[in-house]
Structures are given as C-alpha cells and as structure tokens.
Amino acid sequence: MNYKTLNTNKLPEFFEKIKKTGKTVLAPRKKGNKTFFATFDSFDQINFDYVQTALSPKSVLFPRVEELFTYKNDDGTYSVKEPELKNEVVVFGMRPCDGVALDYLCDFFLNENPDKLLQDRKNNTTFISLACKSFDNDCFCTSVGSSPAETLGSDLCFTDMGNGSYYVEVVTDKGQKLVDAFPDLFADTKEINKVEQLAQVPVRFELKNLVPKIPTVFETNIWLDQSLACIGCGACAYVCPTCSCFDVQDECNPKAGTRLRCWDSCAFGQFTLHASGHNPREVQSNRWRNRVMHKFNYSVQNMNTISCVGCGRCIRVCPAGMSIIEHLISVEEA
C-alpha cells in the first residue's frame, strides 16, 4: 500500500479539480438533522460533523430504482435498449464500515453470475472513506470484525491527523490513479500509526461465540420475542449497506417503457408470497429470523463472511425501537 498526505486546506481544491475532470463528486451534506451524500457544488455545503450518513453509498453501485432496459414496440417486435453507464463518480466521506459493506456487495453481485450494471458502476466509481473520530451508542463495527481503521472496500482512506493534514492510505489501483492525477496536492509519506486519532468503539458481543450459536436457536421462540415490536416497514433493509434484495417491475405501457429493479426487503409479507396464496414465511417472526440468519449464518455458508458491518443505521432508523445489538446479545446469551 502507498501512503500520502494532503493538507486539509487543500481539500476544496481537490474536489474542484475532480469536478473539472467531468466526474461527479458526492460528499456529505446536512439535511435537517441528518447527513446524506449529495452532489458537490461548493465546499461550504459539505458537512464534516456527522457520526454516520443516514444512507450508505450503496445506491451509487446499486440504485434504489434502476433501469434494466427500455423497450419500444415496433409493429409487434420490440427494440430493446440497454442502459449505458458512463458517469464517473467519486464518493467522499463514507465511513470505513461502508467500505466493508461495498466489498461484500461487490463480492455478492460480481463473483457468480456477475451483474453487468453493478460492474459498470463499480468501474466508474472511486470510494474515499473518512475514518471515524467519533461514534455513537448504535455503532458496533468492532463487534463484527471491523473498526474505524478498516480500509477494505475503500479506494482511498483519509484520516484527519489533527495537525492540519489528512493521512491518505492508497488502497487500490483506482485510488492510486486518482491521487496520481493531482500530484501537486499529495505528498509522499510512510506508514503512520493512525489508531490514536480514531474513535475507540467498544465491543458489544463476541462474534466468535455468536456465529456458531445462531443456527442452534433457529427453532426457538427467540425470534418471536425479538420481533414482537416489528411492524414490517422494511426501513432496516432500506438503510442497510449490505441488503441486496430487489424486485423487478415494468413501468409504462406495451408500446414503450422500462423494466426496472428496485430495492425490496425480506421484512415484507409479500416478499415470499406465492401466487397460490401460500406464504413460506407467513409471520413477521419468520421474516425477522431470515434477516438475522442471512446476515450471520447464510452469508457465512455462502460467502465465508458475515454480512453485517456494524454501521448501526437499522437501529437509528427503526420506528419500533428495535436494536440488533440487543438481539444479538440475547442470542449470544441464550
């Protein structure tokens, strides 16, 4: 890995220069009391005072609603047009846990039956993470094998060293290319111990106890107890950086239109509903169990990794006050 430094007062210039190359820069911006990724226009719009963005940058690779193709009816046969994805994007300010999530998401979508749309978007995007200097009660990255120092899934990782400069870890070739494009901004440095600068997120449960425990409680009432509050709104999946389920729908009419995919959630009763009326996951506790099992067991079986990165968004967003941390602790103690 290569290491660089960037003066913090050079950051506006960095963004302006990227913008001038025709790329879109997405950076954190405050909206109400939450922070979202938004297209960069001017530096004073950027918000640096956030623990976590309300939504992850997942949608940059896997949009909420995405065109699969458009069609036009020409006298009984259809002309079909695939989307061309050319827009180049630089995402700045995601937290390291989101990088881990992107790494998982890309593994899932690209390793077997690779997904062209996600592949194209990934090729066009550079992800810059900004290591965490603060955390809140809902952060639990250190409980799921990650930490604010993690660089997996980021192309570049910035750490504010508190001395007027960012320490920049160049993680991938794509990150190297971006740094190389602006040689006057970045200075070479050697590897620095950044950990002292970072948030010390407490460990809430022991993953190595939890993972083997989860399948053993599959048939117990623990899921029912946990999901009594769940209203099946699907918000947890919507904000989750690793949730990847989607629906495929058509829009418009037989003459011309779009087939698209949009995010879906296993929390919804209709998600598994058969045409016959039979529903394999009939009650909310079955759906809740599936969510937790997928993150902590099915992913391990299929991809040799859990698919929860401890970003805490599902806890912050849940209108029923459910906390996956508490639930996982109760499984661990069951």
């Binding site: 039956n113 989607f246 495929v248 995919r261 879906d264 058969h274």
Partner: peptide, 14 residues
Amino acid sequence: NRMKCGVGKCGHCM
C-alpha cells in the same frame, strides 16, 4: 418459490 431474477441475486426465493 417466488422469484424475480432467476440468477441468485434478488433474494426472493431463498
């Protein structure tokens, strides 16, 4: 099972 993608991605048939 209900299916949307056919290629092991959409999650419906899991």
